[in-house]
Simulated assay, not measured.
Amino acid sequence: MDFKPPFQSIVWNGDHVTIIDQTYLPEREVYLNLSSAGQVWDAIKKLKVRGAPAIGIAGAYGLYLGLKTVTETSFESFYSEADRIAEYLNSARPTAVNLSWALKRLMATIYAVKDQPITDIKQTILETAVTIHNEDRRLCKSIGEVGLEVIPDNARILTHCNTGGLATGEYGTAFSVILHAHHAKKLKQVWVDETRPLLQGSRLTAWELQKADIPFKLNVDSAAAYLMQQGEMDLVILGADRITKNGDTANKIGTYSLAVLADAHNIPFYVAAPYSTIDMDLETGKEIEIEQRDAEEVTHFGSKRTAPKKTDVFNPAFDVTPNELITAIITEKGVIKPNFKTNFEKLFG
Score class of each variant (00 low, 15 high):
P6V: 13
P6D: 13
F7S: 15
I10F: 05
N13F: 05
G14F: 04
D15T: 14
T18S: 15
D21V: 07
D21C: 11
Y24D: 04
P26F: 01
R28Q: 12
Y31I: 07
S36H: 06
A43R: 10
I44C: 10
K45V: 02
G56V: 09
I57T: 03
I57M: 07
A58E: 05
L63A: 02
T69C: 12
E72I: 03
T73W: 00
S74R: 06
E76W: 01
S80V: 00
D83R: 12
R84F: 03
R84S: 14
S91L: 05
S91R: 01
A92E: 07
T95Y: 05
V97E: 03
S100W: 00
W101P: 13
L103T: 00
K104I: 02
M107W: 01
M107A: 11
A108G: 02
A112I: 03
V113Y: 14
V113I: 12
V113Q: 08
Q116F: 07
Q116G: 02
P117L: 04
K122I: 06
Q123H: 03
E127C: 03
I132E: 06
E135T: 05
E135C: 02
L139G: 01
L139H: 03
K141Y: 08
K141G: 03
I143M: 12
G147H: 08
L148Q: 10
E149I: 08
E149M: 09
D153H: 06
N154D: 15
H160P: 09
Y171E: 10
F175D: 02
I178G: 11
K185L: 08
K185V: 01
K186G: 05
Q189N: 12
W191F: 12
Q200C: 14
L204G: 12
K211W: 02
F216E: 11
N219Q: 14
A224I: 00
Y226C: 09
L227Y: 10
M228C: 14
Q230W: 03
G231D: 10
E232Y: 00
M233L: 15
L235R: 00
L235V: 02
G239Q: 12
K245P: 01
G247M: 09
G247W: 04
D248L: 06
Y256P: 01
A259H: 04
V260S: 04
V260H: 03
N266Q: 13
I267D: 05
F269H: 05
F269V: 10
V271K: 05
V271A: 15
A272M: 12
T277Y: 08
T284N: 12
G285P: 06
K286A: 15
E289S: 13
E289L: 13
E297S: 08
G302P: 04
R305P: 11
D312T: 11
D312F: 00
V313G: 05
V313A: 11
E324G: 01
L325E: 10
I326T: 09
I326S: 13
I329L: 04
I329V: 13
I329P: 11
E332S: 12
N339L: 12
F340S: 10
T342L: 13
F348R: 05
G349K: 01
G349F: 00
